[in-house]
Design a binder for these strands. Sequence first.
RNA 1: UGGGGAGUCGCCAAGUGGUAAGGCAACGGGUUUUGAUCCCGUCAUUCGUAGGUUCGAUCCCUACCUCCUCAGCCA
Length: 559
Amino acid sequence: MSSTRTPAPVSNFIRAIIDADLARGLHNRIVTRFPPEPNGYLHVGHAKSICLNFGLAEDYQGQCNLRFDDTNPEKESDEYAQSIQEDVRWLGFQWSGDVHWASDYFDALYDFAVELINKGLAYVDDLSAEEMREYRGTLTQAGRNSPYRDRTVAENLDLFARMKAGEYADGAKVLRAKIDMASSNINMRDPAIYRIRRAHHIRTGDAWCIYPMYDYTHCISDALEGITHSICTLEFEDHRPLYDWVLDNLSIACHPRQYEFSRLELHYTITSKRKLLQLVNNQQVSGWDDPRMPTISGMRRRGYTAAGIREFSRRIGVSKSGNSVDMAVMEGAIREDLEAIAPRVVAVIHPLRVTITNFEGAAEREADFHPQHPELGSRVVSFGRELVIEADDFAEVAPPGWKRLSLGGEVRLRHSYVMRCDEAVKDEAGRVVELRCSIDHATLGKNPEGRKVRGVIHFLSCEHALPAEIRLYDRLFTVPAPDADKEVDFCTYLNPRSLTVVPGWVESSVKDAAPETRYQFERLGYFCSDRRDHQPGGKLVFNRTVTLKDSWTKEAGSL
RNA sequence: UGGGGAGUCGCCAAGUGGUAAGGCAACGGGUUUUGAUCCCGUCAUUCGUAGGUUCGAUCCCUACCUCCUCAGCCA
């Protein structure tokens, strides 16, 4: 369940290109693709790419493929492939037709390599990896030709066939494109396009011992699928000439165009798969779907909505400039969606006991789940002699601007009476442990006469409240750019207070909430019952998705 | 110091030879039995810097500065 409103797409350079291509009749319809390698869980950066590629296909009534770039069996697993599909679907997108795999094209890829060899554009090289590095030259110095560069076509054909047949050890030989060892673009200095690697592949098993490289595979996969716009991140800009070289030299009619946009950086988070994996392996977090993780599954478990993430993606736009987006943009997008859809209920996280001295028995009152959406229904709010309120809502002496409860002061109990605090009971240490208050019986559903009560606080009747585990999440890192400094380990910036678990109380209407049910706990924030640990009717576990905007804390902080 | 990119408000981001959209944040004010939401208003004489072309430049030209990126048999 999410808000359905779909704002107009934001103009960006890729849409401009597509508009122009369509206008001059280069394509009738566009075909994009989202091409992850199944070597990890998807994160918020991938969400941007997913929203871009699938979103473009939707807007232009084209299609978007999901294609796994599974050319490096050593790093890939089916668990990852499954999670990626689940994440894409959860985000609200459906790929065109079946899932595609680069490994579907292994035979075709092999044949194309033979074509390159026949054209004298590829050769088998016996140089070791270290030797190849030496021969490659540097950023400022041209490389040198490999001594094996001039093998005949026949010899190359034979050698490549024998590579495939498993006659050589891993790493003994590679197939290289014959381009230009003096190119100022290092990617063009005879890049390796096939390597020998005896590893079990998640789909082809042990059928192959040679695997094609990314640069060679990606462009051909795109062409074979009729992709019109192949969109990737900026670090592949230097690879575009190679992308084009491969397609220009092969007998494939289709030649997709590659466009690059800048990857997402989000304040206070990291989006490096390697580093996220490190957090998981070192148990700094509970797993890939820990609610503090910027993974799609983590954000989901935290309570972020798919519509909210899509809206975030729309708001940040697409460009080629370096960027680092404020968390506030994400939180704003999530809040906007939750504001519209989340039922309001009451929870008390840091309880302070209140006894109502002039009340006996019990009382009930009906209250809507949402102030603007009565169609969400209502529930019963119980009142009694023993209550709990939020400890933060009481101050013996009201600071300037205070609208909550103070000794001798009055406050409105949400959906209930106006209450005055008559006495604060303290323990030996001088801490307030209980309040003795009285209510104005004439204020249920109406304002008191002759005076104005400004503040409203929430409360729970002790008799009716249910215990719940409340998980309060804060940012995972203490600095905006944890991995900016290459000299400092990003883990040193881990926020020790990123998770606080507190025993709290919730109103009885949430008792049977299914896992992954979202609420607004009034005045506290948006919360979501935990996907894994929450048990309807049993142990209740809620994750704080995001706080409400809070102008009081800000004001108080600046006093 | 080679190649490839990028520099427009605190953070994103449109835009174009004709006089700077929008969002987020921020700041004022109104409504409110959530200090939420909602509503109203304010927020770049200026587009990395310096020159030049032009009636006119953020947009064209030149030079410079800053940042990012590339030397895997990873993707």
